Simulated assay, not measured.
Amino acid sequence: MSLALSAARFGAGGAEPWAAALRSAAPTLELVPEDPSTESESLDVQRWSAVADRADRSTLEGLRGPLLDVGCGPGRMVRAALDAGLQAWGVDADPVAVSTCRAAGLPVLRRSVFDPLPLEGSWSSLLLLDGNVGIGGDVEAMFARCRRLLHRGGVLVVEAHPDPARDVAAMWRLRGAAGDSDSFPWSQVGMPALLRAAHDFDLEHAWQLDGRWFARLRAQ
């Protein structure tokens, strides 16, 4: 079975470090692989909870609504898209992330991106930032799902891992001050692996800003 079909959620279960970080604006969490040959990584939760920065805003240039931010977390990109005059929604499976968005007045759907969604095949733009191309642990399945959501000619903006050689699909745990989450599937891909997986998209533009790498892809 594809890892993308797993019900396990990012940072859920165990000590619930993701929910705790969202509630307390903890500065960082650690993404810890179950495979000891893969290195752990620090995650900048504080940036995800802050106002969109210039690298974030660069991903919105030229986009049209309706726009869907996949794995929207606390909603900074939904807010940025609305502020840019776009019709925008977020989708996230985490109840605390969804509650955080709704408390801020942001439109958000509480479900997995792999669940049925409104406007199937009619979205003009999708965002996959902050490593969310790795949701479910199967990058090709994520790209296929995004293609089904977009209309023909729609745009997907996706963020790649900063290491161009990165191509990992594994089980991970999220580690916070109080302990670890349950394990969940996650992938990490640098730009070459990301583009290899995007079978149903044409690359329009790739750029680097403030140490982050992005690709703008158009649905075939």
Rank of each mutant, 00 (worst) to 15 (best):
A4T: 06
S6T: 00
A8W: 07
G14C: 06
E16Y: 11
R23Y: 02
A25Q: 10
T28W: 08
P33G: 11
E34G: 15
D35C: 03
D35V: 08
D35W: 03
L43D: 04
D44W: 11
V45Y: 00
V51Y: 04
D53M: 08
D53N: 12
L63E: 05
L63F: 10
R64E: 14
P66A: 07
D69Y: 03
V70F: 04
V70M: 08
G73D: 08
G73I: 13
G73F: 08
P74S: 14
R79I: 04
D83S: 14
D83G: 12
W89D: 07
G90H: 09
G90C: 10
G90F: 08
V91C: 15
P95K: 08
A97S: 13
R102K: 14
V108N: 14
D115I: 00
P116E: 10
S125G: 09
S125P: 05
L129N: 01
D130L: 08
V133Y: 04
V133A: 12
G136W: 02
A141Y: 01
C146A: 13
R147M: 05
R147N: 06
L150D: 00
H151M: 15
V155W: 02
V157T: 02
V158L: 09
A160L: 07
A160V: 08
L174W: 12
A177L: 14
D180L: 14
P185K: 11
P192K: 01
R196Q: 09
D200N: 14
W207F: 05
L209A: 03
L209M: 03
W213E: 06
A215L: 03
L217F: 02
